[in-house]
Every structure is written in structure tokens, then in C-alpha cells.
Amino acid sequence: MALAYHREIDRNTSFAIWKIEESADELLAQLQLKEHELSYLDTLISGKRNMHWLSTRVLLRRMMDTDNYIDCKVDSSGKPYLSNFPHHISLSHSYDYAAVMVSKSKAVGIDIELVKDKIERIAHKFLSKEELDFIQDKNRIDQLYVAWCAKEAIYKLHGKKNISFLGHIKLEPFEYEGSGSFDAMLNTGTRHSKFKVHYEKFDGYMIGFVADDNEE
């Protein structure tokens, strides 16, 4: 497993991207899994889904830099959390890459996606008319992926079900520049928050990430 990219956001927050090059057995050998985790692995279809689960846990172990067992669980909404460490985490994966974001002080969200033209067909399902209006013809596919990754990152940070990309998360207009940041709003009726979303393109993939600065 090769570290492809690492970025520190602040003294307490960082994320890393790893290229998945090992076999499932090689990844498994780097983990300290309990019986319930091994049982869950058995329910996953072998192949990418199995490799993605293993690779995000291996990368998490590297980022935590500990020899202790890491109890990574998911809550009732499917949000991953650590029961024996105080850190906030977010996990993502796409094809040959795994992504993990970790913070000691704030909720975080990260998404990585392989850029493909097919996103054009579903853009209207996750972007409002106002948001579609600021998507430019130049770099259109890349900008659509930034929008998707931004909303997915906020969704993961919030960590609750029944959140609509189209109805609850609004992006402020931005121009695509390969990497950058822009404002976004989450309005669920019970929560109204503003976030600064960041994005970068890496090796044909789009990365979107966000941290809840209100929690510091």
C-alpha cells in the first residue's frame, strides 16, 4: 500500500490518500480485527468492496500511528466512529484509492471519486437549478464532481440519515480551478450551518473535504 498523498489541514486535522496495491490477505495481516469484524468481512462480496473496507482500516491505522487496537464502529446512521479514541474520522474509497480524514477536535467529512462523464446524466438529481446555472461548460465534468464530492463530504460530516443533497445542502457559486474552496450551507430544519468546502483533483480523481470549524 503506497501513500499517494497526505495533507495537514491544521495541527489537529489531516487526511491521506493511499493507492491500493496489496492483496486482501496482505491488508488483513496489517490489522488487529476482532471476531465481529472478521464476521462482517465474511458478509462482503470478495473484490473491491472487501478491499475498500480493509484498505480504509489499514490507512486509518497508519494515520493514528498506534500499536493499540482501533475499535472502528458505525452508528445507526452508518457514520464511522472510534469507540476507544477521541478522534473524529471520515472514510472514503473509489476504485484504486482509499481516503481517510482524521481530526482530534472537530467533525470531518471526505469523499474521493474517479472522474467519469456519466455524472452529467444525474447532475439534476443532486444540484438545484441555481447550482446548475453556475456550472461552466469549460471543465464541466470536473466541476460537477467537485459539487458531488462537496455535498457528500458535508453529508458524511453531518452523519445523519434522511439528508437530501438536493433539498438540504446548498453550494455557493464557485469557479473550477483544479483546487480551491467555496462556501456551502446545510439546512435540515433543525440545523443550519455554513461550511468552507475544499477540493483537489488528484490522478484523475476528485477529492472533496470539509471540517466543522464551529466545533473548535
Rank of each mutant, 00 (worst) to 15 (best):
S181A: 07
L28E: 06
E120G: 13
D42V: 02
Y81W: 10
A2G: 14
L144F: 04
L28P: 00
K138N: 14
E215F: 10
G78T: 08
L60V: 09
Q143F: 03
T13A: 07
E200G: 10
G204D: 05
F165R: 02
H158E: 05
L38W: 04
L54P: 00
L82E: 01
K73L: 07
R191N: 12
F134H: 06
K125N: 09
L132S: 11
V102W: 01
Q136G: 15
F182L: 10
S179G: 13
I17L: 08
C72P: 01
H6N: 12
S181E: 05
G78A: 08
I89C: 05
I70M: 05
P173R: 09
Y145F: 11
Y40V: 03
D203E: 09
M1P: 00
D142V: 03
P173V: 07
Y97E: 02
N68D: 13
K151V: 10
M51D: 09
S39Q: 13
I119G: 07
V102R: 00
G78Q: 10
I122R: 04
A4P: 02
I163M: 11
F209H: 04
V197I: 12
A211V: 04
S46F: 11
G159M: 04
D137R: 09
R121M: 14
I141N: 11
Y199M: 02
S76W: 02
D111G: 06
E21C: 13
M206P: 00
I122E: 07
L38V: 04
K138G: 13
D183F: 15
V115H: 06
C72L: 09
I17D: 00
G180Q: 03
R7A: 04
